[in-house]
Each structure stands twice: as structure tokens, then as C-alpha cells.
Design a protein around this nucleic acid. Structure first.
Lengths: 207, 207
DNA sequence: CAGTTATTGTCAAACATTTAACAACTCTCA
DNA sequence: TGAGAGTTGTTAAATGTTTGACAATAACTG
């Protein structure tokens, strides 16, 4: 029944959302696929095609209403609801991510950090307490958690991921440099910084 | 003359590199595309096709020599040479990235951090000094810098990127949530954390 | 050392994505 | 209010990517 929408399209949606947000801030009321294509350096055809995957948001002869389209894409991306996030591994990167998420106003909220290091336990990062890993199970029983961010060394990542899944977590934002093996009902979004850096390195040598 | 290799292929190379590194650590001497395909959950055909973009690294009836292939992919990705990296914006994320890069042994070396915040100037992060932004120009004259990492608020990112390009930087690892407009000879690799989080959010709502 | 098995490199087919083209429709302005 | 300009949604073509198939060849086995 429902046609699956390709990840190629999904990857582009946040970018549309960002540009529309900026247009909204600049009090632009309407925009055509052609104008937007110039702004974003993609083809107008792709914009229309992409948006049409989700329905007809525009109007012939007029274009798209910026506020309406921004809202709709927000809904598509699930940004109209709050996501509670916890983070495992309150190291350097973990703390940076904790801060980062709390800046993403409205849709994501960091509600707990976890670490095995006793020295970190009890501290707060960006107003959020660091708990010991042993408290994780209890915490998950008491709080609705939508996303777990994994910012820990790759050696522990697989094991922790498995535990998280057993405890009912179904979405993992994975910063560990490893491919997690999880059941089909669990979503993993990887941020592999090394891979990104290597890709950059490749592209440097090509010029 | 030279056929351009698609970014789809390039994106996969670091992953091959990682798996081959792990095999190497496990003292595996040879591997067939079929075995590797099972390990990585991709088709054997894709592996052979990908590798053949760069030349025939395997041997019929034998497979691929793990060490040789690992080395070759390393060379393709430019990891056989040292890249000096500087970082602009020594905030939370910047410090985490500085640490991270210095862990990536062998190929990347963080040699300087820069910030406008006087309080941060003079400190060291992961053994690297934080300089004031005003020293950037001098620093670039005295040091060979291959990559600049941008970890600063988006409002300043475009301006700083422009300055970097004018000072001769040709590779930018961009963590700011903005699309940088740079000349053709400059390579930009984006890490848009918000986009990644939104993609995750979308995929959650789809299950 | 000959026969059998394994495995690559590569060609072609299948599939997916992107771009172009245009009919249908709406808006604007005289 | 009607003609012309503008713009979408959608279909079809072009392009790009992935998969399957297999000939060529090397390694292994007895």
C-alpha cells in the first residue's frame, strides 16, 4: 500500500527544512521551486519530485507557502513531537553532543547521561545529571526514552547497544566506530567521524 | 582520460578499510569477496565492483590478501600521508573533535586550535595550544595546514570559511549547520549533526 | 601434474534516481 | 473578466547504481 520513500529523499529533507526555516526568519512568504533551486543549488525538478513524495504542498501559478511547507516537512521529520534522548558515554564527545542536542530547541531533549566512570557520576552537563551505568535499567523504567546516543569506545558499543535493545530502546544515534547489529525494529543512525574525515582526505588528493 | 569515481563508491571505502583493519588485527591473511560480503552485509558483487574501480587487487581462485588490500585502500584514501589539521572554534564540540583527531593515529594530526574567546586562548586541549583568531594568518604562513575543521556557530562560519580560503586553505571539515559557498578548488566535507538526528527522527516514526 | 574447485574481473541486465518536458491549472493585471 | 505569465504535479527519458552471470584463471588436492 504505502510506497516506501527512498533514503536518498529523506537525506535531503532536513536541508529543505533548514532553508525554509531561514526563509521564514527572513519573512519570505512564498517561494517557487525555481527560486529555491537557485538558493540551494539543486534542480527545481528534484525539489518538486521530492516534495511530491509526501503530497502536493504547492499551488500552480503560485509556488509554495513557506510557513506551510516548513511545518509540513517538520511533521514529516517527526519534529512536531518531543523526543527524549539519553546518552551513554559522558566523555568529551558525549558532553559536546549533550550540549548540542539541548540547543536543538523544541524537538529533542537530553534527559540523562550515563557513564561507568565514578568520577563523572553526579556531575551535570548542560543541566543534565550523569548517572552510573548501573542505574540505566531503573531510569528506563521511570522515563520514556525515545533515542539513545552512543558516544563510547567501539569495544563497548556493541555490548551496550545490545543491552539497550533488551531494555526496549528502539532508536540509536551511534557515534562509535562500529556497525551495530540490531533487530529489524531498531533504527540506527550512524555518525562515523573517521569515515567522514577519510572521505575528505580522498577528495583532497583528487584535486 | 581518468574516469571519475562516484561518491557512492568513495563513501563505502572507509568502511572496507575498517573491516580489513579488523581482519588484519585478527591475523586473517586472505579473504574472498564472498566471505567479506557476509561479514559486511553487502553483496559480493558490489565489493568486487567497488574495488575494481581502482584496479585488480585480488587473484582468481584465491581472493584478496588482507594486508595488501588494506594498504591499497589506505593509499587510495590518502592515509599514507600525514594531514595537518587546525580547528576553528574551541568550544565543546571543537575540543571533542580535537581529541578525536589526535586519536586517529598516523594520518591526521591536530596542530592548532583557534578561538575568539580570550579565556580559552593559551590553554591546551589534548596537548594542542589554543590561539587567538588574530594569529591565524601568521600561523598559516609558518605551518603547512591541510585541513581546517570548523566547529563554530553558523553565523560566523561562512565568514571564517571565506577568510580561510583566502589564506589558502583548500579543505574544510565543516560542523557548522550551514552550506559553505567556496571556490571549485576547495573541498568541503559536511558533518551536519542536526540533519542526522532528523533523519533518525523520521525513521523512528516510520516503524 | 591433471582434474576439480574457488574466485576474480567484467559484461549485461535490473533497478533506482535524477532530469527534462509539458499539460493542467492558478494567479495577476490590464 | 479575459489573456498571458508563472508554476505545479506528473509522466517519460536519461542517467547512475547495484546485482547477477559467467568466462578466465589461479589455487588446491590426491
Amino acid at each position: 500500500m504505502e510506497r516506501e520513500i527512498s533514503q536518498a529523499v529523506i537525506r535531503r529533507m532536513p536541508r529543505y527544512y533548514r532553508y525554509l526555516g531561514e526563509l521564514l526568519d527572513s519573512n519570505v512568504e512564498r517561494i517557487s521551486s525555481n527560486e529555491l533551486s537557485k538558493l540551494m543549488h539543486v534542480t527545481a525538478s528534484q525539489i518538486r519530485q521530492d516534495l511530491n513524495n509526501f503530497g502536493g504542498f504547492g499551488q500552480q501559478g503560485y509556488g509554495y507557502n513557506v510557513k506551510f511547507l516548513h511545518d509540513e516537512i517538520g511533521k514529516i521529520l517527526g519534529l512536531n513531537q518531543m523526543h527524549n534522548v539519553i546518552l551513554i558515554g559522558a566523555g568529551n564527545l558525549g558532553q559536546a553532543i549533550a550540549n548540542y542536542v539541548n540547543f536543538e530547541r523544541l524537538s529533542f531533549r537530553m534527559i540523562g547521561l550515563f557513564d561507568v566512570n565514578e568520577e563523572k557520576v553526579g556531575r551535570t552537563v548542560s543541566g543534565v545529571e550523569v548517572h552510573h551505568m548501573s542505574e540505566l535499567s531503573d531510569f528506563l523504567k521511570k522515563n520514556k526514552v525515545d533515542i539513545a546516543a552512543l558516544t563510547l569506545p567501539k569495544d563497548n558499543a556493541e555490548k551496550v547497544a545490545q543491552e539497550l535493545v533488551e531494555m526496549g530502546i528502539t532508536a540509536i544515534w551511534n557515534f562509535a566506530h562500529v556497525d551495530l547489529e540490531v533487530p529489524d525494529n531498531v533504527v540506527v543512525q550512524n555518525v562515523h567521524l573517521s569515515d567522514s574525515l577519510m572521505q575528505l582526505s580522498y577528495n583532497i588528493t583528487q584535486i
